[in-house]
Design a binder for these strands. Structure first.
Lengths: 177, 177
DNA sequence: CGCATATTGACAGTATGCTGTCGAAACGCT
DNA sequence: AGCGTTTCGACAGCATACTGTCAATATGCG
């Protein structure tokens, strides 16, 4: 069967093997998630802009709305690198929206806390977010949103499990060429 | 009714008005989308890393897989700024994965095209993506993914319409403090 | 208690993506 | 044909987020 061997080899090297229907569905789903995420960040920036803030600063403000927290804790909760949050927290402090206190339990750590001005700023953003969320939510419908949220959670779990496996295998990710 | 006026005012300034159930559902949905998007970018980087690439470079490679295109066209299709794509395209060209040709129809424009090496690199990434997509897709199920995709598309349309309204109203977005 | 390990914040460097602006070229409408 | 508008790539600057490294401090185990 030299002929079909050659064809199979040519197919492997010149065109990708096709995905399963479920794989196709997931790929489409992933592209849509990425695209919507971009729009949501834009929208978040727009909601926070009248208060002079951005999505990133809003997220950190919201994390300390109900009680202070260390930068490292906030970063873990948000699933971000410590330094990303540290940078934003320093900016918020520089603009008087938050302040650092010593952590009585840890001499290294500082606890981030909202100032009165930070709280007022957060309230303003939240009010704008409520109008937006209610409007879009009403258009889509609660039932459909809850159903999609369930799928989103399942995919997130599945993808995160895959990531964990790679990490536990001691494979530090590399970048660049 | 001075008493109830005062209470209403206090409520407005000290606590956010509650969202509708649909607004809550949308807010939860949005948070999940953002979180999954982060995971998907990580996964994309991991899939592209063995080929020495990243999510961003992979996206641009894929855009010119079936025929060349100008940077501006690619940017519009991806929903990104022209300069983000230009930067990546220049990097791909510098690494020999793609090349620029003059556009016979437009003296300003350059058409980006895959080199043989770029095509081989893309094939390698696609092979890894197929394995991943088929595995996760099988775990979630095609039906549920398609259903969630429909909701995702509806939300994307709704949010994008809101963005358009702001833009058509001549309201350039501002940043920073 | 003492030492290996983990955590915390600081510093440095890089990748991705956005906005604004400019000159050149293309397009559209009169 | 001519002129205003849009589109294209180039250049500059900023925001967000990641990685790696270091010293100081906490923590856990023998």
């Amino acid at each position: 069967m030299a002929r079909s061997d050659a064809r199979a080899r040519a197919r492997r090297t010149s065109a990708p093997v096709e995905r399963t229907p479920a794989g196709d569905a997931l790929s489409l789903f992933a592209v849509q998630v990425l695209r919507l995420a971009g729009l949501l960040i834009e929208t978040g920036d727009a909601l926070a802009a009248p208060a002079g803030q951005t999505s990133a600063r809003w997220r950190v403000l919201a994390m300390v709305e109900h009680g202070s927290a260390t930068v490292a804790t906030i970063a873990r909760t948000l699933g971000q690198a410590r330094q990303s949050v540290q940078r934003v927290a320093d900016l918020l402090a520089a603009h008087g929206l938050a302040e650092f206190d010593d952590d009585p339990d840890d001499k290294r750590a500082m606890r981030l806390r909202l100032t009165a001005r930070g709280r007022a700023t957060l309230r303003k953003i939240q009010a704008a977010q409520r109008v937006w969320a209610d409007a879009v939510g009403a258009e889509i419908g609660e039932r459909q949103l809850r159903a999609a949220s369930t799928t989103l959670a399942r995919v997130t779990d599945s993808v995160a499990r895959g990531e964990d496996e790679n990490q536990s295998a001691h494979a530090p990710r590399s970048r660049g060429s």
